[in-house]
Amino acid sequence: MITSAIPSQPTSASAQRLCSYANTTSSLQVIRIGNPSAYSFERVVFPGDRVLFEAASEAQLEVLSPYLGQAIKIEKIACRQLQVDVDEHRLSA
């Protein structure tokens, strides 16, 4: 399993959530967060990989599966559902 991090969105720190998404399928997936206020990202996630990212509390992650050269959306997930609980005491050690 490979874990990668995606740079955080340029919004206030209080509105950010550390999130995690894992591709538990046997197929390649593309994940993205689109934000009309100019920030967006898109990443390829291989089967078995996990991605950590920061996103605005109201953001939604779109999970797409490439098929015959076209991206087919398979689901939208609220980033608040993907939030990672961070133990600040472990991070400061």
Rank of each mutant, 00 (worst) to 15 (best):
R17D: 09
L82H: 08
E54C: 15
L18A: 02
S26V: 08
K76V: 15
A78C: 04
A38Y: 08
Q83I: 09
R50L: 08
R50M: 11
A13E: 08
Q70V: 15
A59Q: 01
Q29G: 05
Y21K: 02
F46M: 12
I72F: 10
I2K: 10
Q29I: 12
P66H: 11
E62V: 14
A56T: 11
A78W: 06
L18K: 01
T11W: 09
T11Q: 05
M1W: 11
S4N: 08
R50F: 01
A22F: 07
E58I: 12
S26Y: 04
H89I: 15
E42R: 08
I74P: 02
R80Q: 10
S26W: 03
V86F: 10
E42P: 01
V45Q: 05
P10E: 11
R43H: 12
S65D: 04
S65F: 07
Y21H: 07
L64C: 11
L68P: 00
E62H: 10
T24F: 07
A5R: 00
E88G: 01
D49L: 08
S40H: 12
P47V: 12
A59E: 05
E54K: 09
A55C: 09
A59G: 02
A59T: 00
V51Q: 00
T3D: 05
A13Q: 01
A38E: 03
I2H: 06
G48Q: 04
S37E: 10
I6Q: 02
F53Q: 03
P36T: 12
Q60R: 04
T24L: 07
L18T: 10
C79G: 05
Q9G: 05
S8L: 03
A71L: 15
V63D: 03
Y67D: 01
A13I: 11
D85H: 08
T25K: 04
P36G: 14
E88D: 07
V51R: 01
A15H: 04
K76T: 15
D49F: 13
S57K: 02
Q70K: 10
R32N: 13
I33H: 02
I2L: 10
S37Q: 07
A5P: 02
A59K: 03
T11E: 09
R90P: 01
V44L: 09
M1Q: 06
A38W: 09
I77N: 00
E58Q: 10
P7T: 10
P7A: 12
A5V: 13
V86Y: 06
I72K: 06
E88Y: 12
A22E: 12
L61N: 08
A38I: 14
V30S: 04
I74N: 03
S20T: 07
A15N: 09
S14R: 09
Q70A: 14
R17G: 09
L64I: 02
G69D: 08
T3L: 07
V84P: 00
A38G: 06
M1I: 13
S27L: 13
I31R: 00
E75I: 05
R80I: 13
Q29K: 14
S12K: 02
S12R: 03
A22M: 08
Y67W: 12
V51A: 01
G48F: 05
D85Y: 11
L64A: 11
C19E: 10
V84S: 02
C79A: 07
Q60C: 15
